[in-house]
């Protein structure tokens, strides 16, 4: 049925809350208020205060308590309201959730999911707009899921909740209202499997989250000029489906990576490095990264638009390869 990205996430939560009594949701304003962006609207009325738990503004507690409750057999889904706030509770991700299984010799597990939302373009300025998905990909032990479509979002969220590892699940502000046909009921999208969002033969664009949409729009433009673009969405960054990326680059011989975050040390750098190490002979042209500049995100709409990688910039980058 037709669902927005926000509704699809809510539907995924509902499927799991109904299926498994150990699943609960906790975070700031996720209860009667329905979440800062309305994603959890109605769940409190449906599942009650035991399962849908409003917390104080206490990110260390929110994430840390999920480490403890999941180690004791529950399956918490917690929310850190903005990606920017992940930095407030970085220890709980990097030193706790990520390391419990390893430090304790595999005798403990932390099956928790943390929802968060990233992305610029809504005038939220420097501390509510970042896309910091690369930060936690550097820490072994965590899984990073970052869907670009409603159907992927629902299926990946259900897979994330059933996964026995700590998962960080990225929503994007610009995608919440995007709508498509989403399967009803219970289904999963496998973690670690890329999806080709548009097939093409001349150049591969690897993009995730909102940048998939921008890249598809760019592909449409480029088709008019006779350039056939393949758009590959990895959907999860850790684990990364590098075989799919290498296969696509093997087909097209060109690679453009589009990321919304700052260029330096964004996840695109990792993808470029992998292809350089393992697929240099597949390439007919240099790898290009289209990314935001290395600046904080400005408030003024004019400056913010300059910051965000645009369809025009993607088109220009692709054309520069021919």
């Amino acid at each position: 049925m037709q669902m927005t990205y926000a509704e699809a996430i809510r539907d995924g939560l509902r499927v799991e809350l109904k299926r498994d009594p150990k699943v609960y949701l906790a975070g700031e304003d996720v209860g009667p208020f329905g979440g800062c962006f309305g994603v959890t609207a109605g769940l409190f009325d449906e599942f009650g205060p035991k399962r849908i738990v409003d917390t104080p503004i206490s990110e260390n507690f929110i994430v840390g308590h999920a480490v403890g409750s999941s180690a004791c057999g529950l399956r918490p889904v917690v929310e850190v309201m903005f990606d920017d706030f992940i930095t407030v509770c970085f220890d709980e991700f990097a030193n706790q959730a990520a390391k419990v299984r390893y430090m304790f010799g595999g005798k403990a597990k932390v099956p928790m999911v943390c929802l968060t939302i990233n992305g610029a373009g809504v005038g939220a300025a420097a501390q509510h707009s970042q896309s910091l998905e690369a930060l936690l990909t550097h820490i072994p032990g965590l899984i990073t899921v970052i869907p670009s479509t409603p159907a992927d979002a629902k299926g990946l969220l259900i897979a994330a909740i059933r996964d026995d590892n700590p998962v960080i699940f990225y929503e994007h502000k610009q995608l919440l209202g995007v709508s498509e046909d989403v399967p009803e009921g219970d289904y999963t999208v496998p973690i670690g499997k890329a999806d080709i969002k548009r097939e093409g033969s001349d150049v591969t664009i690897v993009a995730w989250s909102w940048m998939v949409q921008k890249s598809l729009a760019a592909a449409e433009e480029l088709a008019k000029d006779g350039i056939s673009v393949e758009v590959l969405d990895p959907r999860t960054l850790v684990p990364l489906d590098k075989e799919a990326i290498l296969k696509s680059v093997g087909k097209t011989g060109r690679l453009v990576i589009v990321q919304e975050s700052c260029k330096t040390m964004g996840f695109g750098s990792e993808i470029a490095a992998i292809v350089a190490e393992e697929g240099l002979d597949l390439l007919n042209a240099p790898i290009i990264r289209v990314a935001a500049p290395n600046t904080p995100i400005p408030f003024s709409p004019v400056l913010e638009q300059e910051y965000i990688p645009s369809v025009e910039k993607i088109v220009a980058a692709v054309k520069s390869l021919f």
């Binding site: 507690f61 480490v67 409750s69 004791c72 529950l74």
Partner: peptide
């Protein structure tokens, strides 16, 4: 917070 989570469980 981890202990509080255990108590929650």
């Amino acid at each position: 917070a981890i202990a509080a989570g255990a108590a929650f469980a």
